[in-house]
């Protein structure tokens, strides 16, 4: 039982990160219909920023998190005004834009390799100290922080999308751009808001996970694939369903790795993604987006 709980605790923390990445995917997808394949690299950018600010510049965590948000905001603006909007204005087809997101990700990776270095760097946790043990189950403080912050962020994003006029308007932009425009919603500006929100959430996810797995240019892909799986598994519809799906994937990964076989755990995780991709589209069409 202790072993099961131990695995569950790890799975929830890991899955919460997948959920955050899913959240990042969904926010841009809802606003623009674009699947952003640079999400993993944006997570990496958050982690690398945290590394530079915390370990190289010796700033405190409040400033580090502020810095991560600022860098995320800048990246979002570059992404939106440097790539996305010009392509939209030229009437670029969706597939070109998807390729552009992949290219943007590759550029971010190369920039991190050249600017910071191509290796994994350790990042101190927010609360250093021994793992906390409760009834035989031990947790790293950082895992607790990850889980808590991830769910708070999902809560905030949910609140934003359902309880604020800007959030509801942003959903309207994604659901029916004409409806939003004739209602006076500043469509272009709100799409920028969506990019900023998505990148900030993802980059904060990166900063959170860095103390556990380190920060490095190539860290994003594995997490992004599972985050994407979580978004699809959640029906590409709601932020909290993506989060729940993320946690489910994290749990399955941990439990199957222990109880079935550690060698097949990645296979199991990717099988879930394939199943999700094959089975989900019908449901996505039916349910539509509801926050």
């Amino acid at each position: 039982m202790t072993t099961f709980l131990q695995l569950a605790v790890s799975g929830i923390a890991l899955g919460s990160i997948y959920g955050l990445v899913a959240l990042g995917f969904l926010v841009i997808y809802h606003a623009t219909g674009l699947v952003n394949f640079a999400q993993g690299q944006l997570l990496m950018a958050g982690a690398m920023t945290a590394y530079v600010l915390l370990m190289q510049l010796d700033l405190g965590y409040p400033l580090v998190l502020l810095g991560v948000v600022v860098v995320a905001l800048l990246l979002a603006l570059v992404f939106r005004y440097g790539i996305h909007r010009p392509m939209v204005r030229r009437g670029a087809p969706t597939e070109n834009m998807v390729v552009a997101t992949i290219a943007f990700g590759l550029v971010l990776t190369a920039a991190a390799e050249l600017g910071i270095g191509n290796t994994r760097y350790g990042v101190d946790p927010i609360f250093p100290g021994a793992p906390i043990a409760i009834g035989g189950v031990s947790m790293q403080t950082q895992s607790i922080v990850i889980t808590a912050v991830a769910w708070v962020l999902v809560g905030l994003v949910w609140f934003f999308f359902t309880k604020t006029l800007t959030g509801v308007s942003l959903r309207a932009v994604g659901l029916n751009r004409t409806a939003a425009a004739v209602s006076g919603v500043r469509v272009s500006r709100l799409i920028t808001v969506a990019f900023a929100l998505s990148v900030i959430v993802t980059a904060v996810g990166g900063a959170l996970v860095a103390p556990i797995i380190g920060a490095g240019p190539s860290m994003g892909l594995a997490i992004a694939v599972k985050g994407f799986a979580a978004a699809v598994l959640g029906g590409m519809s709601s932020v909290y369903r993506g989060m729940v799906a993320g946690v489910a994937i994290g749990l399955i990964e941990m439990l199957s790795s222990y109880y079935i076989s550690s060698a097949y755990a990645p296979v199991i995780a990717y099988t879930i993604l394939f199943l999700a991709l094959v089975l989900m589209p019908a449901r996505v069409r039916k349910s539509g987006a509801t926050a």
Binding site: L7, I223, M254, Y258
Partner: peptide, 20 residues
């Protein structure tokens, strides 16, 4: 012997498997 994905994000199952 246990294995894991390269650049893994969590090795709890592997460690617990060996311990148990």
């Amino acid at each position: 012997a246990v294995s894991h994905e390269v650049n893994a994000t969590d090795l709890t199952p592997q460690v617990l498997s060996l311990r148990d």
